[in-house]
């Protein structure tokens, strides 16, 4: 073996480098900190330039994609049924706001609890399987939820739940004005985003990474890997439910589209396009997809074709996604 003083590339040969200096502020690296500042600035500035309704929808999907990315990017689990948690969160929040007259934050919270509860049951069933079987089981279970939603009365079948009231935040601040609702949704998104960041950079997240990297080794170190995966699954499903609930309050309707498998596909597309396993990738990916759907709407059915082409291009040329490629070019972690 080479002499003990030979350092690997990138590590200074002289002396022992100080321990764990890469952790910047609150677990953000410097590049991530800068990106976060840009994102917050964009959150504040954008509603003055772009249609708030569009931005709110974008933020709901961005949160959904972030929740999905927590699972695929940091645990390596491809769930192909995340529409179930998003859609059920959407329906329950809609029902709670419209029929039970709950305030929006409680309705959305209930959507999150619904997503998490469903995630606990489905995750418990699916996690015993690996790879493609895991994806197939999550898809099958989500399809079950879809058919339940077609049948049960409270979802109103093809019509969906319409005219969902926005209500008043904490019963105090009226959210009927677009800008008021925008700040509420932006705050919710930011909270969710920071929560996911914390999960990734927690002692729990450290074990999750170890499981993603080498599951048998993590087991041999005494970690019950299935339990960790299940907790991650529940967190992801819960945040997806919150995103669904927020979407219902924002758009004012909850329909079968939200639980359809195409929605599960869309969140995969957003995450891959933005950059799997990057903190900001899903946000950029959601912005790209929702942006396309909104601004290419005049092309009608061609949107799907264009989306398909972009997806193929992404898989062929930019494997790491937009943010992933950017991070590689700049040699930073984003």
């Amino acid at each position: 073996m080479a002499s003990a003083t030979t350092a690997p590339p990138g590590v200074p040969a002289a002396g022992i480098p100080p321990v764990a200096t890469h952790q910047g502020y609150f677990g953000f690296t410097r590049a991530q900190g800068i990106a976060l500042l840009i994102m917050v600035a964009a959150l504040i500035a954008c509603p003055y330039f772009l249609y708030p309704q569009f931005l709110m929808k974008l933020l709901c999907f961005a949160l959904f994609a972030c929740a999905f990315n927590l699972l695929i990017g940091y645990v390596g689990l491809l769930s192909f049924g995340h529409a179930a948690y998003f859609g059920m969160g959407s329906y329950v929040a809609a029902h709670a706001a419209k029929v039970w007259g709950l305030t929006p934050e409680l309705a959305i919270l209930l959507g999150g609890v619904t997503g998490a509860g469903l995630g606990l049951v489905f995750g418990w069933i699916a996690i015993r399987r690996q790879g493609i079987y895991f994806a197939m089981i999550t898809l099958a279970l989500a399809q079950m939820i879809y058919f339940v939603c077609v049948q049960v009365p409270f979802t109103h079948g093809e019509d969906g739940i319409q005219a969902i009231p926005r209500g008043a935040f904490l019963g105090l601040i009226d959210l009927r004005a677009d800008m008021s609702l925008y700040w509420f949704i932006a705050g919710l998104f930011l909270l969710g985003f920071l929560l996911i960041h914390r999960v990734i950079n927690s002692p729990f997240g450290q074990v999750l990474t170890a499981i993603r990297e080498n599951e048998p080794r993590a087991t041999s170190l005494g970690y019950r890997t299935d339990d960790y995966k299940l907790v991650a699954f529940v967190l992801s499903a819960g945040i997806a439910g919150i995103a669904g609930g927020a979407k219902a309050i924002t758009v004012g309707i909850a329909t079968l589209t939200d639980v359809h498998w195409a929605m599960s596909g869309e969140v995969v597309l957003m995450t891959l396009l933005g950059g799997l396993g990057t903190l900001f990738g899903p946000v950029i990916g959601a912005a790209a997809v929702v942006g396309m759907q909104t601004y290419l709407a005049p092309f009608g059915a061609w949107v799907t074709v264009i989306q398909g082409c972009i997806f193929v291009l992404c898989v062929l040329a930019f494997r790491a996604g937009i943010v992933g490629e950017l991070a590689r070019m700049l040699r930073v972690k984003l």
Binding site: R198, S202, P203, F204, G205, V207, A210, R224
Partner: peptide
Amino acid sequence: VRVALQRERGGSYDFWRSDAVLR
């Protein structure tokens, strides 16, 4: 190595805590 040492804490399910505690 730290992931192994971390076992001493028992289950590391505390996803709300910063990983600075691992230092």
